[in-house]
Simulated assay, not measured.
Amino acid sequence: MPERLFLVVAYDGAELLDIACVTSALDIANRIGAGPPYRAVLATLGGRAVACDSGLRLESGAELERINEPLDTLLVTGGTGHERAAASARLVGHVRRLAPLARRVASVCTGSTILAEAGLLTDRRATTHWMYAATLADRYPDVLVDAEPVWIRDGHVATSGGVTSALDLTLALIEEDNGPAVARGVALGTVAYLQRPGGQAQISMFLARRGTEDFVVRRATDHIAAHLTDDLTTGALAHRFGVSQRHLSRLFHTYVQLTPAQYVRRARTEAAAHLLTATALPLAAIARRCGFGSTESLRQAFQDRFGAPPSRYRSQRSGTTAHGSGPPAR
């Protein structure tokens, strides 16, 4: 294969970042030795320029109607125009026509709506931007929508969450094609986190908590994030912030939809997930750093949160971590 043809399908109202995260990552991969090299082509109906969400216009590189050659990857971008695009029988028809010509099919963000309309997500697990997940699930009940992951691979079809998750998905595809060294080089070139695992939540609780309106909950969640190894029982937290356990539980239920204990467990699990993918620390050390009483309690928390033990979670990202010390988790 002299090159890998990576066809990006766009339309009016496409999100520029959805496109740029993909094409820029592929360009960097080429510069550092991807082989065969990628040829990224932006395709539109009639080969017309498209107006992105931001107002900038992108010139098309190909007419969607004229493409008949084998593809390495067919990827549909997302954007606020995805509803109109999914309602276009011509665009959806060409996506459906091109899918069998591609080694793999993918979407970024709300591009999953177009894949679903084309019947390419039927009976598959898929994700999309968290804001649109409920709509996708309601409209296409035969699609197994999971709003949390950054990206999902089901067979030869991959879908990703909102906007910059396009970079995470593209890094995963680059690693699949070229190995971890090239993927890591692309991550370093884009000054990105080496690679968020597909199962990681689109909205980390450490980000989401900052939107909490209640002062007590904000202080409590800040304290939890900074003191994972402390006594974080509901009683200890209630005493620290001068409220009753019942009132603290009511506040957490109202503002974060979790009990204090559930929030603490999830915070510790997310912190452990980061250490597993960003360091080579052994599991026992990670458990201690994140406040788990034992490696077994960490394993159980991982199984509950991610549906996989820590060892499998880490092995899926094997080769992309380069920091920390000690043997990998067992």
Rank of each mutant, 00 (worst) to 15 (best):
residue 205 M to S: 13
residue 144 L to K: 12
residue 40 A to V: 03
residue 230 D to M: 08
residue 215 F to V: 14
residue 282 P to I: 07
residue 2 P to R: 13
residue 118 A to V: 08
residue 189 G to H: 01
residue 262 Q to F: 08
residue 190 T to E: 01
residue 137 A to D: 08
residue 37 P to V: 05
residue 161 G to K: 01
residue 138 D to C: 11
residue 107 S to V: 08
residue 191 V to I: 08
residue 130 W to P: 10
residue 141 P to F: 04
residue 76 V to F: 12
residue 242 G to M: 13
residue 280 A to C: 07
residue 13 G to L: 03
residue 132 Y to N: 12
residue 53 D to T: 14
residue 92 V to D: 09
residue 290 C to S: 04
residue 188 L to H: 01
residue 121 L to F: 02
residue 43 A to Q: 08
residue 39 R to Q: 11
residue 53 D to H: 04
residue 140 Y to T: 06
residue 174 I to Y: 01
residue 118 A to E: 07
residue 314 R to T: 04
residue 111 G to F: 05
residue 201 A to E: 09
residue 329 A to N: 03
residue 102 A to M: 02
residue 30 N to P: 09
residue 305 R to H: 14
residue 299 R to T: 14
residue 105 V to I: 07
residue 181 A to F: 07
residue 83 E to R: 15
residue 253 H to F: 11
residue 286 I to N: 06
residue 298 L to I: 04
residue 208 A to F: 01
residue 148 E to A: 15
residue 271 A to V: 00
residue 33 G to K: 06
residue 330 R to D: 14
residue 182 V to D: 03
residue 247 H to R: 15
residue 57 R to L: 04
residue 30 N to R: 11
residue 273 A to F: 00
residue 296 E to R: 09
residue 29 A to E: 07
residue 60 S to H: 10
residue 272 A to E: 00
residue 214 D to F: 03
residue 178 N to W: 02
residue 187 A to M: 00
residue 306 F to W: 14
residue 328 P to A: 13
residue 108 V to E: 04
residue 133 A to S: 12
residue 231 D to K: 11
residue 26 L to F: 00
residue 64 L to T: 13
residue 237 L to W: 05
residue 278 A to R: 09
residue 298 L to V: 03
residue 252 F to R: 00
residue 258 L to Y: 13
residue 322 A to Y: 14
residue 149 P to N: 01
residue 32 I to C: 00
residue 101 L to M: 03
residue 169 L to T: 05
residue 89 A to M: 07
residue 79 G to H: 06
residue 214 D to S: 06
residue 112 S to Q: 00
residue 241 F to D: 05
residue 259 T to M: 05
residue 205 M to R: 11
residue 111 G to R: 03
residue 104 R to T: 05
residue 85 A to W: 06
residue 165 S to D: 03
residue 138 D to K: 15
residue 207 L to S: 13
residue 131 M to G: 10
residue 106 A to H: 05
residue 53 D to K: 06
residue 274 H to V: 11
residue 2 P to S: 13
residue 80 T to F: 09
residue 231 D to S: 11
residue 282 P to R: 08
residue 127 T to I: 04
residue 196 R to Q: 11
residue 214 D to K: 00
residue 14 A to D: 12
residue 285 A to S: 15
residue 121 L to W: 05
residue 110 T to R: 00
residue 313 Y to K: 00
residue 268 R to D: 03
residue 251 L to W: 08
residue 235 G to Y: 08
residue 299 R to M: 02
residue 286 I to W: 05
residue 63 E to Y: 08
residue 195 Q to M: 13
residue 160 S to W: 04
residue 56 L to M: 13
residue 256 V to S: 06
residue 292 F to Q: 06
residue 132 Y to I: 10
residue 5 L to A: 11
residue 86 A to E: 12
residue 125 R to D: 10
residue 2 P to I: 10
residue 177 D to L: 01
residue 50 V to L: 06
residue 39 R to K: 14
residue 110 T to V: 02
residue 71 L to N: 07
residue 176 E to F: 04
residue 202 Q to V: 08
residue 323 H to R: 14
residue 68 N to L: 04
residue 233 T to K: 07
residue 49 A to P: 15
